[in-house]
Design a protein around this nucleic acid. Sequence first.
RNA 1: GCGGGCGUGGUGAAACUGGUAGACGCGCCGGACUCAAAAUCCGGUUCCGCAAGGAGUGUGGGUUCGAUUCCCACCGCCCGCACCA
Length: 839
Amino acid sequence: MSEAVLSEPSAPSAVPLTRPFREVFAGVEERARAVWEAEQVDRCDLDTPNPRRRYVLGMFPYPSGNAHMGHVRVYAISDAVARLSRFRGYEVLHPLGWDAFGLPAENAAIQNGVDPAAWTAENIAKMKDGQFSRLGLSFDLRQEINSASPEYYQWTQALFQLLYDHGLVYRADGWVNWDPVDQTVLANEQVIDGRGWRSGAPVERRQLPQWYIRITAFAQALWDGLETLRGQWSDEAIAVQKGWIGRSEGVEIDFPIVGDDGCAIKCYTTRADTLFGVTSVTLAPEHPLVAELAAPGQAEAVAAYVAAATGRSEIERETAERTGVSLGRIARNPVTGEEVPILVSEYVLGGYGTGAIMNVPAHDARDFDFARRNGLPIRQVILPAPDAAPEELDEAYTEPGWMTGSGEFDGLRSDEARQAIIDALVARGIGTRRVNFRLRDWLISRQRYWGTPIPMVHSDAHGWAKAPELPVMLPAGADFSKGSGQAMASVPGFVETVWPGTDEPARRETDTMDTFMCSSWYAWRFLDAANTAEPWATQRAEKWMPIDYYVGGLEHASQHLIYFRFFSHFLHSIGRTPEPEPVRHFLDNGLVKLGGEKMSKSKGNVVVPTEAVDRYGADALRLYILADTPLRRDIDWNDAGIEGKQRFLGQIWSLCVSLADATELAGQMAANTPRERAAMRQLARLAVEVAADIEERRGFHNAVARLHSFVGELRPLILEADAGERPLLREVMREFTKVLGVFAPHIAEMLWREAFGGTESLFRQPWPELDAKWLAADELTYSIQVNGKLRGTVTVTADSGEEAVVAAAKASDNVSAFLGDKVLRRVVFVPGRLVNFVV
RNA sequence: GCGGGCGUGGUGAAACUGGUAGACGCGCCGGACUCAAAAUCCGGUUCCGCAAGGAGUGUGGGUUCGAUUCCCACCGCCCGCACCA
């Protein structure tokens, strides 16, 4: 084998060009990487004066220790964008970092007694040096970050305190999602179908004091910002965000309590048009007035109901029957004056709106069930047609319609009546227009060790204060035997401290932050990873933010991207980043599956990237993973597919090698023969379309298809070329290596140098820019239709006008036969495309 | 239930603003090279038909000279959220 020769970087001419590619690819790739390393080709100048700049970022990985195909897909995409951008004259920031806090490291510590920091460092080394490094990704590792290092998390802590200073952090006693297996509190986004997202255990509800970030302060801004992303984010990604933010417009209505002057229950509704159909008012079990309002005779039943409901898990409550208990009190409908009972039921959510609702069984499916079950009246106030009569309902009528039984509003369309009723309520001071969001504040406390310590101290006398010195170091030597929540407290000397500015005793917070805190601001840290004075210099953010292309899975659209956007909006509001939105183009990629199933170790259906690299090479792997399947769809792994890509690279290899000995072109690329002109046209189109496929159309798979087409067109030209044509064809293939390099950088670099005599890296070269004339064909093929049916084609010179084309079309055999002696009614002429005769 | 995506050959898919449906890949078939095989290369590959021709993008309708693309109704699949009043 030739590896011995190949691995010697000072002997570039030693690449055995005449050997078949599949025998030498490993050496070619190794050598290309050695060259890039030696020449520092992947460096980014963060202070560049170049006005053309691009920030290309793949979501940073969790260092599990094993690179998987999902990583390959993300970085094959980001690297293609990065390399194309460099060719096109941009200074490109394309960094790599590690999302290094999180549960697996801690679980390893608990189970095997290893130090989470050591475990994590080892995994990072494994992934970086043994796995990612073999893919030929153009990262500038001078910007590498590790979110679990004190150099990083001191700034996570500083930003937490900055949020605190702006009133965006608070501590509250609240109902939280408690994961009984992982022994921690979970954010709403981490509860999936009522179960913990990692443990899968049914989540319990507990009331505990926790730290929250007031992301709801930016709910409207986050909602509005989505419209600015249209066309740059997929509709699906925007829809997921909208679902989480969940904006709705409605009205809060006061329902006075009979016999309790001045006390009223506020109910939120988006359906003010149904106000005359209210037959009860229902409070959530968590509603603060429940215990106070319960009539003496009902107090015991109410207390029992509330206790049962609040003790149940989310999943139990969601599937529960629509039971309810009367409080024994009466509310008055503020417009009709009618008296309706007040109940408590667990299907009313305590955390949304006012925690109390008005029940309109006739026009809300849930209220309909509730009324049926609890013997409440059902009163129809909206009819499906203006002349319909109210009738016994089998189910709630929730569509718009025409008003009835609603006093002065009868006969109006319900959507008009809604506004009229709201106006009347507002005018009489018993209602307030109100916008509500589903988005909740972000609970960031975690009863875990392996995370960023929350930099706060507490004293019974003074309450809470920011820890005065950062970082608050995560203490080494934790004892995990009493559970994760106690691990930090177990380290002697950690908890005990003093109240800032005094020598009075105080205690440190022992919770850590949700790891989504780390990933909410990492994009800014890449801009200034070595800064010890501040998390980043503002002028760097001015220069590089927002991210131009952000690559990652759609599964992060609900959590990470909400928090990330929140941080960006906040940072923008205080002048630390130039635009509110952090990401221009979000390239959301699908999964890599095997046999239609998600790859997983437990199923044993994993294709390991390093093994694929061993067998086929990184270039073939990267080319394959971008080919055939559109960006957003899931790939179903297929060995034959990657074999095909290796074969394709072999064809390119031998084709380029066959031209290596042609005379170097002197002067401009001028084409005189038909073969030369054809080659120039192919190259011109390839360069333009591949760039557009990637930058504008997200069509990576179409870009790869174009490479195949190009090679298919060029091969016969090269094989048939005479000696006079070979220099130009050599030059065309030399330019082609740039396009190839976007996807398969190793082979491209080596062909550029070894076959075509490049002296400086391929990736320092400009993108092929050819005269616009090569984009225009000199002949055009028109399709000829008769009555919309294809009857033939005709090829004419490109400068032919309508008359000439129509004449040629009429004359062609097949067409004239179909036209016969029929009367020509109309001729449709589409320039450059077709002629349609209507007879 | 609500929101989003999507239905095209044996298969992954393409068709950018309505204009030659199936580019490109995989597979399959045939051929060359070979004692043979592998590898490689060349050709073919929507369906019916010998052909001329006809049919064809989930189903039914519509708009149009012309519809995979636009509109209406329906069927089916996938994903996300899910008692948000």
